[in-house]
Design a protein around this nucleic acid. Sequence first.
DNA 1: CGGCCGACCTGCGGGC
DNA 2: TGCCCGCAGGTCGGCC
Length: 270
Amino acid sequence: MPELPEVEVTRRSVEPLVVGQIIRDVRLGKPLRWPLSCEPSSLVGSSIKAVRRRAKYLLLELDEGLLLIHLGMSGSLQFHRERAAPGPHDHFDLVLCSGLLRLHDPRRFGAVVWIRSPEDPLADKLLGAWGVEPLSDEFTVQALWRGLRATRAPVKQLLLAGRVVVGVGNIYACEALFRAGIRPTSRSDRIGMARVIRLHAAIRAVLLQALAAGGSSLRDFASVDGTLGHFQTQTMVYGRAGAPCRVCGTAIKVMQQAQRSTYFCAICQR
DNA sequence: CGGCCGACCTGCGGGC
DNA sequence: TGCCCGCAGGTCGGCC
């Protein structure tokens, strides 16, 4: 589920429930992508000072250090007011006074990692080399232009790589390129300024539209209070192979790029 | 260093 | 109806 809109929707719904709360207990389920990197019991007694987001990571700021949460492909956070027995796919619980914050993640590509400080080598490995936040002032046409000029890779793969701009995954890369009228296979360094300007606007617009829709709930993504997102019903190309383009009526095509499915309209994107 | 590819893991939908 | 295959929102590490 988790691209920037889904992670941000999660952040906004979690924040008011956990900020100021003290960690009473920690429960681990099956192993996730990376180990927690500390004794679970060492987190007990810490309070949660803030909930931030960087790229697709949620960052719970503690008294000491940072709890970094990644939702992987299938993760979502839940909040239970009452004690609730964990299911087979519930792999991390933070017990607070106000209730229980729980990571539900069937595929276990997600992770919860404790980071001691910004100088921790783990911080660099996990948060170090990312590009700018697309909804911040740092994401300018110039920044996108420079990033595109620096590589011959297909533009869709550059967007997915996150080195220039973060938070854009497979759904929103396909959608942004459609809205900008750009072929996903176009060589990044051959895209002209007029198109870069359109792509810059399209990335922001599609992410904002998805945020307003509560994200995409392809399987079971939900915000912490259980609300489902509905952006998946608004996509122009993603998941619509064979269906008519909402602009020109031509059948939407799907192809493989770097082992990911790319959806596009061969007429609207040239 | 850039870019491709496999790996990680489980569930589900479509086709036979 | 039931089984098997392919595919799914991410990203790291190894290899050329």
